[in-house]
C-alpha cells in the first residue's frame, strides 16, 4: 500500500494501482470518455488529466492522465483545479467540433457550459470520438480484427487496409462497447451485417430465433471448449426444456413414492 494526498485528503491505495481507479473510489468524479473496465487504459481522451506533484519536486508539477499513472508514495494529486477544468473544457470544445451529433459529447460539453463549439465544425466528422474502446475490446477478445487506420486527423477505425476485417467474427462487442453508438450493424433473415461483412446467425432449432453468429460460436468452441450443441437452441427454449426435464423428474419421483 502507498499513501498519497488527493485533493488534500490522505488516501491509501495499492502500489501501482492507476490513479483514476483510486480517485473514483474516493467518490470524486473525474470525467473520462475512453475508459472501460474490460479493456486496458489507453489515454486517448485526456479528460481524466490530473495535476500531480511531490514534496521533493520543489513546486514543480505536471499533468498526467490519471487512467495511466500508477499510484506511488508521496504523490500529491489535484483533480479539479481551474487549469484542469479549462483544459477539459477546451477538449470538450474540440470534441464538439468533431462530433456535434453525439449525445454523450453534447451532455459532457454542457457540463462545461458549452452548447456549441468555438471551432470550425468538421464537415466530414461522424460521432466517432476515437476512444479505441472497440479496437481494445477486439484485442482482449483475441481477434484484433479492427484497428485504427490512416493517421492524424484522417484516422478512422476499420479493418486492415480499410477493407472488411477478415478476422471479425461478428460478436458485436465493438458495437456494444462504443460509447457513442457509431458502429453500424443489423440482423436480417438469419444473417448479421457489420464492418462490411455478413455473418450467418445460428437459428434456434426449435423457435428459429437468431442466437449468435456461427463464427463466434466456432471461436467460443475452439477457445473455451464450449460444446457446439449448446449454441443450437436459444435461451428461451432451453429454459422450457429445463422445466420439462425437471418436471419429468418430479413426476417420476411422485409416481415412485405413491
Amino acid at each position: 500500500m502507498v499513501q498519497m494526498t488527493i485533493n488534500g485528503k490522505v488516501v491509501k491505495a495499492p502500489d501501482g494501482e492507476m490513479l483514476l481507479t483510486v480517485i473514483r473510489r474516493q467518490g470524486i468524479d473525474v470525467p473520462a470518455l475512453c475508459d472501460h473496465a474490460a479493456v486496458e487504459p489507453c489515454g486517448s481522451c485526456r479528460m481524466c488529466l490530473v495535476e500531480i506533484t511531490r514534496e521533493d519536486w520543489n513546486g514543480w508539477k505536471k499533468y498526467v492522465t490519471s487512467c495511466l499513472y500508477p499510484s506511488e508514495n508521496g504523490l500529491i494529486v489535484s483533480t479539479h483545479t481551474p487549469e484542469l477544468q479549462e483544459i477539459r473544457r477546451n477538449i470538450m470544445d474540440l470534441y464538439l467540433a468533431r462530433c456535434p451529433g453525439s449525445e454523450l459529447v453534447q451532455k459532457m460539453a454542457e457540463e462545461y457550459g458549452l452548447t456549441r463549439t468555438s471551432y470550425k465544425t468538421i464537415p466530414e466528422g461522424d460521432n466517432c470520438i476515437m476512444c479505441y474502446a472497440c479496437t481494445r475490446i477486439c484485442e482482449v477478445l483475441g481477434r484484433n480484427a479492427i484497428s485504427a487506420v490512416h493517421r492524424g486527423h484522417a484516422k478512422v477505425i476499420s479493418g486492415p487496409f480499410d477493407d472488411p476485417p477478415p478476422d471479425c467474427i461478428g460478436c458485436l462487442s465493438c458495437a456494444n462497447i462504443c460509447p457513442t453508438d457509431v458502429i453500424e450493424w443489423h440482423d436480417q433473415d438469419g444473417t448479421r451485417a457489420i464492418w462490411g461483412r455478413t455473418f450467418d446467425l445460428i437459428s434456434c432449432r426449435q423457435c428459429g430465433k437468431g442466437i449468435i453468429t456461427r463464427d463466434f460460436a466456432e471461436y467460443l468452441k475452439e477457445k473455451r471448449q464450449i460444446p457446439a450443441d449448446y449454441f443450437e437452441i436459444c435461451d428461451d427454449c432451453k429454459r422450457v426444456e429445463l422445466a420439462r426435464k425437471m418436471g419429468g423428474l418430479v413426476d417420476l419421483a411422485k409416481e415412485v413414492a405413491s
Binding site: 489515454g43 481522451c45 485526456r46 477546451n90 477538449i91 474540440l94 485504427a148 493517421r151 492524424g152
Partner: peptide, 22 residues
C-alpha cells in the same frame, strides 16, 4: 504536424487541426 500526428489523443489530433484552420 496535422498530417503526421498519429491521431491517438484528442488535443493533438483535433487541436492541431483546429489551430491550423485558425
Amino acid at each position: 504536424l496535422v498530417s503526421e500526428s498519429c491521431g491517438k489523443c484528442v488535443p493533438c489530433r483535433e487541436g492541431l487541426y483546429q489551430l491550423r484552420e485558425l
